[in-house]
Design a protein around this nucleic acid. Sequence first.
DNA 1: TCACAAAATGGAAATGATTATCATTTCCAA
DNA 2: TTGGAAATGATAATCATTTCCATTTTGTGA
Lengths: 121, 121
Amino acid sequence: MNKSDLKLIAVLERTGGFASAQELHQILRREGDGIGLTTVYRALQSLVDDKIVDLLRREDGEAIYRLCGDTHHHHLVCKGCGNTVEIEGGAIEKWAKTMAEEFGFREVGHTAEIFGICSKC
Amino acid sequence: MNKSDLKLIAVLERTGGFASAQELHQILRREGDGIGLTTVYRALQSLVDDKIVDLLRREDGEAIYRLCGDTHHHHLVCKGCGNTVEIEGGAIEKWAKTMAEEFGFREVGHTAEIFGICSKC
DNA sequence: TCACAAAATGGAAATGATTATCATTTCCAA
DNA sequence: TTGGAAATGATAATCATTTCCATTTTGTGA
Ligand SMILES: [Zn+2]
Ligand SMILES: [Zn+2]
Ligand SMILES: [Zn+2]
Ligand SMILES: [Zn+2]
């Protein structure tokens, strides 16, 4: 956990929601921080490894990042404003386990996200 | 539905599982078909629009495609061999709907995939 | 405080998937 | 047959991400 990691955590806290590496880099630059894009990518990768931020993908495949709680969870994301709610996925966990057993899969993981338009939008 | 679309459907039928645009292009080229990469991308995009193929993403964000049934469903994918099972997600559908209602979201969609190691691997 | 190795940093170039252009070819209905 | 629309594919352009590498910063023992 070095200086750059902390900078990224700070900006993610400030912005909330998901943002891409490029966007986070621009924000920091705009604020006068001379951090390099390479360092932004490195810090984000490190934070993902440490499970401090979530990585998921926009529809076009671009990686987006968000500060997250420390427990396994899923997201409800607004396609309008990007507002995000962390939700708990009891039903999913059970479903994934059941399906995996039924078909004889092991070392099982899963992804599940919900997206729509929030009440404000 | 033009000639190229049919070629792509044919090769996807033959290979089964997911493959990237680049991989599908290589396969066709290897078989002597002079189809261009551009056309492969166009055909795949068109098939996705028509809901004839599924588009999902590798961990690195690369798009992968697979011929699929015509009803809403999810996937159980082997990380070893790529073998894929279409599964039905009743629990997910209910979960997504419930969560969306609880937080006042509308026009709701969702993604859910399970991945692991199949019994053969 | 000083010297020095390890870690961190950032700019530039490389990579690789996807998309945009555009000239040419194929289709097809009149 | 013919004129225009649709399809095609080579090439170039985009754009996110990674690699490389030289420089700077940091930490530590003498
Ligand atoms: Zn919203
Ligand atoms: Zn889960
Ligand atoms: Zn397998
Ligand atoms: Zn579903």
